[in-house]
């Protein structure tokens, strides 16, 4: 297997750690290597009320297409987010790999959502309508 990293983009993410109203904000700088698209694409079916497959391992640079093939609205939220509004705020303020997902308003039956996972890591996600982190409608993508 040949992985050619045409670019090794370094992402310095300034992470705001919020632990309550009076907690001090601390800045943490991390360095994250990203890889370009590798031309691979997989599809995850989003059914009522499951992601299929719910666990998947992919190589960094793989595009993942989530298709809502159920009869109901769903969303795809990182485990750190509690609802659609939280996701919208995250996407507006954060360009780190942790900022991804789709709110239910943009993921009605027939909709699809495509995301390029170009940073290795474990991406846990769930649907807030039909699940919670790690329970009900949830999934995990492991990007190596």
């Amino acid at each position: 297997m040949k992985i050619s990293l045409v670019s090794s983009i370094v992402v310095s993410a300034v992470l705001l750690v919020s632990c309550g109203a009076d907690s001090p904000e601390s800045a943490v700088t991390t360095t994250i290597a990203t890889v370009p698209p590798n031309g691979e694409s997989i599809t995850i079916q989003v059914l009522d009320n499951s992601y299929r497959p719910s666990e998947y391992e992919i190589k960094a640079g793989t595009e993942v297409v989530f298709e809502n093939r159920g009869r109901n609205d769903h969303n795809i939220l990182p485990d750190t987010i509690t609802d659609d509004a939280g996701l919208t705020a995250l996407l507006a303020s954060d360009m780190s790999p942790a900022a991804w997902g789709v709110p239910s308003t943009a993921f009605t039956p027939g909709d699809s959502f495509t995301h390029l996972f170009n940073v290795p890591g474990v991406y846990k996600f769930y649907c807030s309508i039909h699940g919670a982190p790690g329970a009900g409608m949830y999934g995990t993508l492991t990007v190596s």
């Binding site: 992470l15 943490v28 360009m95």
Partner: peptide, 12 residues
């Protein structure tokens, strides 16, 4: 292209 630096603000 290496060394492109993105500053991303994240919520943790």
């Amino acid at each position: 292209l290496a060394g492109v630096v993105l500053l991303a603000v994240g919520l943790v």
